[in-house]
Write a protein that binds this DNA or RNA. Structure first.
Lengths: 223, 223
DNA sequence: CGGAAACTGACAGCAAACTGAAAGATCGGC
DNA sequence: GCCGATCTTTCAGTTTGCTGTCAGTTTCCG
């Protein structure tokens, strides 16, 4: 597996590199966020090992930026911080797993195996619904060939439907998606956003199931 | 999300159930491996929360058995053991994540969300009855390939039949399901809804047993 | 054939959902 | 830092269609 290791500690970095090499992976090792950006642009990786505490910037911001750019490469976060809020922040920023230093190298191997298993053979899907072409990885939508721009909330909501087509989504479920567990909404935000999505994507795309929730019209194809 | 919680500690179990309910998930709670086997065979789940230390057997063996049987339902392991070798064993047995007790309920929420994100796109198991394909998790039904829309009450009633195929359901039983305990109906509501279901799903799907109740025609397969 | 049980179509009431507008929050450029 | 633009949330008024009920009819079985 082609992996990118972002880690400024030379001892730990070397150890991880050696262990992964022994597991049969090829590892590119950079020391900071800047180098990581460059490395990712120059070649694709199948997995990123990301230290959150880096000299030249915040690793979490790097992760968020990659996800915002539509990059779905699995990321395992390595960090010395073990506050629960840190873990939640990392997972919600799009991390696939979370390892607290000092960790055992064999455990790292196990986690890498798990991630690899998870992502085996998973190319970018293109979902087609009615006259929409949705690229989940790139976070882009075309309606009858024309690009449609969604705001952050709109996308976050719509993504929920596309990820599980024809799955009924209750309003609490959708709220949970927009507002991670803590925040409370005391109004009809979901209804408002459903309305906006319908205006942008077509009225028939999301159907209401009164008293239960909403669901995406059946998709036509998975390419 | 439809989740199965396998946990023998009543306090922790209740806490997890409450938190997950607040997150909008529906939780079936069993206390041991035996019940878990039965639950999984009777209805599909989208996620399993598995305690490794159970009175009636080793949770890890249960997990291995499910994976060996080809079950890919995501599993989050909950345990008091925190040896690194335990973690590796759990992950290699096919666990998707690993939480050490005592854990924060909010972290559990975050992990559940992460797993949900990760596995979006996997098809749900289907129950097939005559020309109907029923996806209990997605709350969707296809009749001869075409999507059929049920209202809240209609679904609630029909679900009762699908969950216990070929079992006779008396009218009082069904009323209790629709109107949990308190509210009383003083009319032929059940008959009306049976009629509506028949019109939407096909006349022969639900058969009348005069004086006794109703029953679903035997399902053909579990896919 | 008679009576009970089940079925059906119609309908009013009401909670759920929709919509447009406006206030509040966020982010960028200068 | 200030301002403008855009996105987000709230609110109130309107619309929608599900739900439970009833009356009339049909079916079943002794």
């Amino acid at each position: 597996m082609r992996m990118l290791l972002v880690e400024d500690d030379p001892v730990l970095g070397q150890a991880v590199r050696d262990q992964s090499a022994a597991d049969g992976h090829s590892v590119d090792w950079v020391k900071g966020v800047g180098d990581a950006q460059a490395a990712i642009l120059s070649a694709p990786f199948e997995l990123v090992l990301l230290d959150l505490m880096l000299p030249d910037g915040r690793g979490l911001d790097f992760l968020k930026a990659r996800r915002a750019a539509g990059d779905v490469t699995p990321v395992i976060v390595l960090t010395a911080r073990d506050q629960i809020s840190d873990r939640i922040a990392a997972l919600d920023a799009g991390a696939d797993d979370y390892l607290v230093k000092p960790f055992d190298l064999f455990e790292l191997s196990a986690r890498i195996r798990a991630v690899g298993r998870r992502y085996a053979g998973n190319p970018n899907p293109l979902v087609v619904v009615a006259d929409l072409e949705i690229d989940l990885a790139a976070r882009s939508i075309r309606r009858a060939g024309r690009a449609v721009q969604l705001t952050r909330r709109e996308w976050s909501l719509f993504e929920a439907f596309v990820q599980r087509p024809s799955q009924l989504m209750s309003k609490p479920q959708l709220e949970e998606r927009l507002y991670s567990f803590d925040a409370e909404v005391e109004s009809n935000t979901i209804e408002v956003y459903i309305g906006r999505l319908r205006r942008k994507l077509g009225a028939h795309i999301i159907e209401t199931v009164r008293g239960m929730g909403y669901r995406l019209g059946a998709p036509e194809a998975h390419v």
